[in-house]
Every structure is written in structure tokens, then in C-alpha cells.
Nucleic acid binder design. Structure first.
Lengths: 364, 364
DNA sequence: TTGTACGCGTTATCAG
DNA sequence: CTGATAACGCGTACAA
């Protein structure tokens, strides 16, 4: 016992503190109670805003709190309340990227940051923390589910990019409060927010047709991805309504490169194309490049409309006319829905669909 | 008391479970011990991999664990070990965005996702979780510090974008293990990873001069931002070494728009410019747009080199030659350093500087 | 090598 | 309205 420290010094010996490995005990609820001259139970009640508190003691406790700089111990609190005070932002992807050790193209996509921003904008106003989880394979998903069942997080904000993903279903089975950003690929009784992809596509079609295009083509994403499905369906329906039964199309995978390839094929097979709707901005950027290289002017010869209004859209040459998805708002709403669900797990499943808007720039 | 539930059912009533609000008790360490026919202490030792364990019991315990699907309770563990098992990724910014409710342009920048990816790539292999914190003002920073002091997270990975930010200093004062991504704006005894910004700039200068440019200009960022400072300094030194004493320059603020404005000024004041080094890719993209609009061909008339190799670089027209910052590797190393620091807070401050590389594309 | 017993800091239940 | 006191689930001296 060569340790020359008092064993229960009131937490004031912090003059020359700051050394890493600091062992000074932190103020506890007991300390607050002692200073405020009340019982620990009362202090707890005041701090947690429970009703039935003498206003006088109320003030006393609070002043004690910031007199000694008390901060509740999250672990102790969680242990007894059985709440983590944390929600998880889960990105469920398939890490099939042999060349890239850092999976999930989502992270490279500005998409991700917008979701994080929207989420934080509501969480920041609450004591709820956000934990990030990337699950690229089933092992990781299994581990996550175990942790969630254990109560490591009170709820999940789910971004599922994997069409075969079983995570949504497993989460509802496990009874974990969950809200998805973007509808699930497979039908499941799960809450989500989404943009009205169909009407977004219709917005684009109407705009292109209104510009006088006679042969509008589509560059869509993979058939299994919900957002891609919906945008394609919306495109075809809107086109059909205007008398264009079988518009040409090519598929990519939401990357710029795939957009370039798709545009090349389109030009090759349908040289008469005079307008293109592309299912996301990244592919649209690729399409723009190919059109320029092919000597087609945008928008004079071939107007192009993208989808998302990601940061890539205004940066494109020419700046991209695109269907805006209010991602921040959507993520914020998802966070609110999740918080409500955590508070009352009995809440019925609900979905909120946001209206897209057309942002007209130079490309169409 | 109309609640018809048993008050302490052993955790086997999970047949038709799955309802939200499930109240079935989760398996605890005691359950494991009971099933494995050992004491709880032994079970604990096995699970935590403590030495001195009979191999036979070892197996017994583990089989019990996954027989009943045991997952350690994080809160209980934290309470006794005084470790959160969590590190915080803190984005410290100034939220001076009156028009945009979702602050921090960083989130819109692909930069953010790369850092997250690199960090997760090392954290995913450990039981350590990542908690996200955005602190846009001093109130938020105060709250964060309180929580950290309390032990809500074991360490901090800090992204500080605010030149006046006091958070780095306060974190070291509080004895919170911290590693920054990018050096602190004000000198502080704090560990960090960074890229050799000076040599990166030199790489760009050498390339441009090697291309035969006679009047190379600089578009830099705000003078207070470390990365901007270092890139500017590196540029000037490299230029000076080659006999160019006072190269023209204009400043932006790392946004595309500011890059456009800066390029316009440059063209205006120094029409003879025949090569540009831009301190980041976003601004370079802006410069590219302005050059095109001004009728200057890139790279024939004016080669342009950017910095970062963000996702904007290959997407630019023409694809941007740029100085690559290995952000994922840097973030991964930062995470490793932080983990080491958490394990041994006595570790001396250390910095790891990564070498940049020139990625030659079409713009120079 | 194993088991017993205590304490981590809170909330919640129950008497007063 | 307030104050004792019993959990919450786990790690770990200490003793066997």
C-alpha cells in the first residue's frame, strides 16, 4: 500500500490533476446527496425529474450537482433501467470488395453523411447516443443481433443495401425497435421512411417530355434494390401514361463507372435517344461524361435528369438537374420515429413517405 | 395488478416470443455457471480469457454459453471494470450555418465516410464500439467533456475543423486518451496522424513544373486551418527551391464554390497563369469549371492538380490529377493508436505522418 | 486451480 | 413527499 492517497477524499483534489491514468474518484450520486443534505433517493428523483419533489430540495440538489460537477454514471443507470440510452445506426451491406479493404461504397457516397447529419440533428437534442455499426457479413450480423438482444442499444436505425438482407426480418423477430431508411427489399412488418420514388421518376419524365424529348431512355440500378425498382417502375408508368410504351433502358449499379458503361450501351443500341433519366446522381455524372465524349451536348442534344440531389449534382458539368430526396429530413424523421418506438414498443408499424422535388439546374 | 406475468421465470419461455416489449429475462453469467456446473467466477474467467483455467471446464463453459445464447451485459461489465468499451468519434466544428439546419459541411464531404470506414476497419475486429458525437458549439463541447470524464467513452478520435477549437487542449487536460486525425491548429501535447502536407504540395509543384509550366499559381484554404497552412507552406517552399519566389495565389475555404471564386480572381489578376495547384479536390473541381468557362483547356493550357484524392477527383471533368491522402489508412492507424493509448494511458504522445502520393489522371 | 463474497453507482419498491 | 434497502449483472480480491 505505497499509495499515498486518501481513500475517500471528497472530489476536490483535482488541482494538479490531468495525468493520464488518473485514479481520482468521480463524484457519485451519494456525493450529491451528502452535499445537498438529502438522501440519495431524493437526489435521484430530482435529477431524473420525477414528480413529487419539494421545490426547495430541488434547487438544493441541482446546485450541489454543478457544485461538484456530477454527471450520472451511464453504466450504473443502464444496469438498473435496462436501457442503453443508445441507438445504433446500422449499415448492413455485403462486403464483396476484394480490392478494397474498406467495404461499403455507401461510406464513399455523400449519402451517408447526410443521413448521419439528419439523425444527429434530432439525437443531439436528447441524451441518446448514436453508435455506429457496419455489418458486412452474416457473422457480423449475428454478433450485432446478440448484442442488441442483450440491450446494448435500445433501437436501430437501419440502412440496408443488401437486397437479400435478412436483418430487417430478424430485427423485428427479435423485437428490437427498428426504423429503416428506405423500404425493406423483402416485405416485412417494419417501420420505415422513404421518398416517393415513383413520383420522383414521374417528375423527371414530365420535365424531359416537357422539354420536347421524343425518345427518353432510362438508366436504372440493380433490379433487386428497392429504390431502383421503384424509380424504374415510376419511370415506366409515367412514360406509358404519356404514350411511350417501351422506352429503352440500361442497368448499372449506382456507381459512376456503371453509369458510364450504361450510357455507352444506350448510345450504341439506341442512337436516337434524346433524353435520359438516370436513377441516381453518381450514374448521371457518368452518363454526362460519356455524352460529352460522344459529342452530344447536354442539355441541347440530350437533356439528363438524375436522382438524389447529392453533392455530386451541383458539382457536375453541366450542373445536374435532379430529383431531390430530402435525406436529412428523412433521417431526422426516422430518428424521431425510432425514439417514439423505443419509448413505446407497442406502437403500430408506420411509414412516412417524403415528397421529392425537382431541382432544375443546367443539364435538363 | 392485472398483469398476468410470472415475476421470475427461468429464461426458457421463449417459444412464441418475439413480441416487442418482451420481458423475458436474458441469460446471465449465473445461468452459464449453472448449466456448466461451475461457479460464476470460473465462468467469468473463461469468458474473459483469464489464465489458469482447466481446459475441460473451459470447453464446458463455452458450450454452455452458446447453448443458452449468453451475451455479456455491457453495462454491468462497465460498471465494475470502469471501462465503457466504447470510443467516441468526435467531429468538432462551429455550426455557423444559419441556412442549413444540419451543420458541419464535413458530413457532406466524402472525407467523413472515409474516416469512418478506416476507423471501423480496425474497431470491427475488436469488441470496441464507436459512438458518434457532433459538437457544433461550446455547450455541446462542455456536455461531451462531462460525459467523457464520467467515462462514457474510453477515448476519443478527434476531427477538429474549428481553428479556434479548444477541445484538443481540454481533452488532454482532462486526461482523456485522444488521437486526432489531422494535427491540432494550436500546438498541444496530443497524439495525431496526418499526411505530410508539405511534401504533398511539393509533389504537385514538381509535377506541374515538370510539365513545363512557367507561372504556377496556388489556390489555398483558410489561413487558420492546419492542412491549408501546411499545403501552402509546402507549395511556396517547393516553388522557391525551383526559383519561383512569389507565386500568385488566392484563398478559398475548401468548398467548390470558393474554388470557383478563387480561380476567377486568379484569372483576373494573373491572366498568364499556366498551372494551378489547389489545396483540395472540391476547390479544384470549382477551378476546373471556371477554367473551362474561360476557354482555357485543361490540361493543355492550364494543368491543374488537386489534393485529397476524394471521390470528387475521378468524377471531375477532366479527371483530376491529385495528391492522394491515404485517409482510410490514417484513420485506421489513429484507431490503433487510440486503442493502445486506452490500454496504457501512460504511453508517450506520438504522431504518425503518412506519405502522400501523386495520382496522375487527366488534369495534369 | 476453483469458489465465496463484496462492491461498482443507479433506480425502484416500500415503509414512514 | 422522503428515506432506507434491495436488486441490476459482473469482475476480482481473498481464501480454500
Amino acid at each position: 500500500m505505497a499509495n499515498p492517497s486518501a481513500s475517500r477524499t471528497p472530489p476536490r483534489a483535482e488541482g494538479a490533476a490531468g495525468r493520464p491514468g488518473d485514479q481520482t474518484r468521480l463524484p457519485t450520486l451519494d456525493d450529491v446527496a451528502r452535499v445537498a443534505q438529502v438522501s440519495r433517493a431524493t437526489a435521484s428523483r430530482v435529477i431524473n425529474g420525477v414528480r413529487n419533489v419539494d421545490p426547495e430540495l430541488h434547487a438544493l440538489v441541482w446546485s450541489a450537482v454543478d457544485a461538484i460537477g456530477y454527471v450520472p454514471n451511464r453504466a450504473a443507470r443502464s444496469l438498473v433501467t435496462r436501457r442503453a440510452g443508445t441507438v445504433a445506426l446500422v449499415v448492413s451491406d455485403s462486403d464483396e470488395h476484394p480490392d478494397d479493404p474498406f467495404f461499403s461504397r455507401l461510406l464513399a457516397d455523400p449519402f451517408f453523411g447526410r443521413v448521419v447529419g439528419g439523425t444527429m440533428s434530432v439525437l443531439n437534442a436528447t441524451p441518446v447516443q448514436l453508435a455506429l455499426h457496419l455489418t458486412g457479413n452474416d457473422t457480423a450480423r449475428d454478433r450485432l443481433l446478440g448484442e442488441l438482444r442483450q440491450g446494448q442499444a435500445d433501437g436501430v436505425l437501419l440502412l440496408s443495401l443488401h437486397p437479400e438482407d435478412t436483418l430487417p426480418a430478424r430485427l423485428v423477430d427479435a423485437g428490437v425497435p427498428t426504423v429503416m431508411v428506405g423500404r425493406p427489399a423483402r416485405p416485412a412488418p417494419i417501420s420505415y421512411v422513404d421518398v416517393a420514388n415513383e413520383s420522383g421518376a414521374a417528375l423527371a419524365v414530365d420535365h424531359l417530355l416537357g422539354l420536347g424529348c421524343r425518345q427518353v431512355a432510362l438508366i436504372c440500378g440493380r433490379e433487386q434494390v428497392p429504390a431502383s425498382q421503384d424509380r424504374s417502375a415510376g419511370f415506366r408508368q409515367a412514360m406509358a401514361r404519356q404514350g411511350h410504351a417501351w422506352p429503352p433502358y440500361e442497368a448499372g449499379d449506382f456507381t459512376r463507372e456503371s453509369g458510364e458503361a450504361a450510357m455507352r450501351r444506350l448510345l450504341d443500341r439506341h442512337p436516337g435517344v434524346d433524353g435520359v433519366f438516370v436513377a441516381n446522381d453518381l450514374m448521371a455524372q457518368g452518363a454526362l461524361n460519356v455524352l460529352r465524349a460522344a459529342g452530344r451536348r447536354v442539355p441541347e442534344d440530350v437533356p439528363v435528369v438524375g436522382f438524389d440531389d447529392s453533392s455530386a449534382a451541383p458539382a457536375a458539368q453541366p450542373p445536374l438537374t435532379t430529383v431531390r430526396q430530402p435525406l436529412e429530413d428523412m433521417a431526422a424523421e426516422a430518428a424521431r420515429m425510432l425514439l417514439a418506438r423505443v419509448a413505446d414498443p407497442g406502437l403500430p408499424v408506420s411509414c412516412v413517405i417524403f415528397d421529392p422535388t425537382l431541382v432544375v439546374r443546367a443539364s435538363a
